[in-house]
Design a protein around this nucleic acid. Structure first.
Lengths: 206, 206
DNA sequence: GACAATGTAAACCAATCCGTTCAGTTTCGG
DNA sequence: CCGAAACTGAACGGATTGGTTTACATTGTC
């Protein structure tokens, strides 16, 4: 993103990142003041500026660390115990739970807001979020076990459709504050409907 | 939203709104300065403040006017010339074209970013955007003409699924700057695939 | 052509912003 | 226990912020 000649020199590095994440997520980039970040991090402003040359670099460091975290979500698609249909259901629920989580929502909000000002941020987020999930799903759809049951010409598009079906209704509602915390049942229902629609299209018939 | 005792007194009202829209869309709420807005609007700051008591009210006035505009998108679903399938395709293309337009993207970005700071904004946007489209689609799905061909238990959810399928891939890509201007063909393809998946699930069989 | 409404340009305010500086304190390895 | 590295707290500078005010210009109407 920028050249990162900056190295972690001291013991309060994590405090700074943590405080910055908190404040940036709450206030956005422009809304967050460096003084507030330093205060929240329990660190002097001089210390903060010894780690990062300026506000932008701090911001990008935070977001990149978060994106990395985002990418580490693990999948349990290998489980042979479950049928393909059940596996899809689990995948949908996992994805939805992540998308609707506080963390997922905050990340999405902040990256959408600032992708203009920091173009490379948009790419980073997309790659470590939606793209990563897409690949994982494709990987499953392409597996022999899935191919046995499914008939898909374009697995990339199918995966995107499935992910998109997982965002039905609830995502926008949470994003715009219409609904606060979707219940387990709501998530389960939307996931089930997503799988149903997906299978209606892609289940092997012949 | 706020009490709107403010009345349009003068001839430069529209200039102010236009300038404010431009700058807010480009810079976000915190990033936009009132001086910049006045400059861009070709209006003195005193004039601006004679229309709006403060920056917040100006911001909300802009967004509400935009939401109203958003709501006025008209549908051509009445066209009896087209089959249900063709109608769905047109609906998807219309929705996608709007979602992927500069205007649609800017609105979405700004409202996502500020829905936290201005809770009622989130509601307003959702109502005049996604909600409105949802209702229109439901209205069509419930029409006798559509019912003849489709078999849907929950038309609300089905409508949301269709809308969600329209966002497949392209929306996130545009939102995060991975793709700039989706071609007509790309849109057409995603729309066609959306309809295909939708019909696979909801086309009447018996 | 006069009168009131509307708009302008600029100075002005207090507050806040980012980023720097510095004298002094804490921490910690050897 | 010493010396260097890390950290602090507070002050500072220059710029910018949202918002007000003032003295003057333009507009449209009767």
């Amino acid at each position: 993103m920028f050249a990162e000649a900056q190295v972690k020199k001291g013991r309060k590095f994590d405090q700074v990142i943590d405080g910055a994440r908190t404040v940036f997520m709450r206030e956005g980039y422009e809304g967050a003041s460096v003084d507030e970040i330093a205060r929240d991090a329990g660190v002097s402003k001089a210390t903060l500026y010894s780690y990062f040359p300026d506000k932008q670099h701090l911001f990008l460091a935070v977001l990149q660390s978060e994106c990395a975290q985002q990418a580490e979500v693990e999948f349990l698609m290998g489980t042979r115990e479950l049928s393909v249909e059940e596996t899809l259901h689990v995948v949908c629920k996992t994805l939805m739970t992540f998308i609707l989580s506080r963390f997922g929502q905050d990340m999405f909000r902040l990256c959408v807001a600032e992708a203009q000002r920091f173009p490379e941020l948009g790419r980073t987020f997309y790659d470590s979020g939606p793209q990563k999930w897409g690949r994982k799903i494709v990987q499953f759809l392409d597996s022999p076990r899935a191919r046995e049951v499914l008939s898909i010409e374009d697995t990339g598009l199918a995966a995107d459709q499935l992910a998109q079906l997982c965002r039905t209704d609830l995502m926008l509602k949470v994003l715009f504050g219409i609904e606060k915390d979707p219940s387990e049942e709501e998530i389960d229902r939307v996931a089930a409907e997503a799988v149903k629609t997906f299978l209606a299209r892609y289940r092997r018939t012949a």
